[in-house]
Computed example of a mutant assay.
Amino acid sequence: MAETYPAKPVRFVVPFATGGGNDFLARDLASELQAKLGQSFVVENKPGAGGLIGSDIVARAPADGYTILMAANSAAIVDAASKAPPFRLARDLAGVAMVAEIPMILVVSNNVPAKSVKELVALLKEKPGAYNYASAGPGTIMHMTSEVFAAETGTSMVHVPFKGASQMVPEVIAGRVQVLFGAANSLIPFIKSGQVRALSVAGAQRWQGMPHLPTLMESGIPIDLNIWYGVLAPKATPRPIIEKLNKEINAYLATDVAKKKLAAQGMEPLMGTPEQFDALVKNDVERWTRVASQVRFSID
């Protein structure tokens, strides 16, 4: 089976709009897999509902290797917070390959006077509910991280959801939305150009791309969250196909070309077996179930 796969084009679903990390990685991998395997990997953006729409398409697809998903840990959040989701991540989707990890950066509009996390918290406490924060939709890691931040700091902001980075970043630049926890790759150009102001990174360690930025932990806020990306397939996809895709993806991620492309996007490669990715997904669903309970968030 693996010897003849793929015998026709493969549908590569991205559950968010163009311009984000999922989209960049899917298109880069699609080009590489097409060159190595001799069939087109056709990227389709299916945004909406925090990634639920696109993920559901893949979960319902035939388990034949011809429909795959470029997922992020937002998928684990939606699973954890949904009361009655159309699918369950660990039950209905199988890990193919971990791909990359990227830090989240806390940025504010230039019309926000805060120059540090401490000053931002003081401002939010002074004017509860007067400031907005952006996300790529309810249940995305941007949304949940913002809610965890509010819970840990005793502040409140108004949630303004968008379909992806290409929609929300311009609103932050314009000052119509003031706060954003976003992926480094979508924010780097705007931070460097001075269009938004970076205050902190959300991971446990300082990010080598901007080592001057303190972590939230350094500011006394116990948050350690990064974004991971990986490829998933319908659960019953034949093992030889999953292993073939895993082998090709890992081989590419180990190249200097891939490492340079990822570094330019603020990302680092993640490599491992399908079993390791399945374990990561399971652990993340459990983690976000606890977080969803902490911030009292659910998706009906």
Rank of each mutant, 00 (worst) to 15 (best):
A2G: 15
E3M: 15
K8G: 06
K8A: 14
P9F: 09
V10W: 10
F12N: 05
F12L: 13
G19E: 01
D23P: 09
L25T: 04
A26E: 08
R27I: 08
R27Q: 13
D28M: 14
D28V: 09
L29R: 01
L29H: 07
E32I: 14
E32A: 09
Q34H: 12
S40L: 14
F41I: 02
G48Q: 07
G50N: 02
G50I: 03
G51Q: 00
S55A: 15
I57C: 06
V58L: 06
V58D: 00
A59D: 06
R60F: 01
P62Y: 00
D64E: 05
Y66Q: 09
L69R: 02
A72V: 00
S74W: 04
A76R: 02
V78C: 01
D79G: 10
S82C: 04
A84I: 00
P85R: 03
R88M: 06
A90C: 12
A90E: 11
A94G: 11
G95H: 01
A97N: 04
M98H: 02
M98A: 13
A100F: 02
E101G: 13
E101H: 10
I102T: 13
S109M: 03
S116L: 15
L120Y: 11
A122V: 13
L123C: 11
E126A: 15
K127C: 09
K127D: 11
P128L: 15
A130K: 12
A130I: 10
A130D: 09
Y131P: 08
N132L: 10
A136Q: 13
G137S: 09
P138M: 08
I141N: 09
V148C: 06
A151D: 11
G154I: 10
T155V: 09
S156Q: 14
S156L: 07
M157N: 01
K163L: 15
K163F: 14
S166F: 10
P170S: 12
I173Q: 06
G175S: 07
V179P: 00
L180G: 05
F181Q: 08
A183Y: 00
A184D: 05
A184Y: 04
F190C: 04
K192I: 12
K192F: 12
Q195Y: 03
L199N: 04
S200W: 05
G203C: 10
R206F: 06
T215G: 01
L216V: 06
M217N: 11
E218G: 06
S219N: 14
S219E: 13
N226R: 13
W228A: 06
L232A: 06
A233F: 04
P238H: 07
P238M: 00
P240W: 10
I241C: 02
I242W: 02
K244T: 06
K247R: 15
I249Y: 06
I249H: 05
I249W: 05
A251G: 15
Y252T: 00
L253P: 04
D256V: 12
K261H: 14
L262G: 01
A263S: 13
A263P: 05
A263K: 12
A264K: 10
E268D: 13
P269W: 09
F277N: 00
N283Y: 03
R287N: 08
R290N: 13
S293W: 08
F297Y: 13
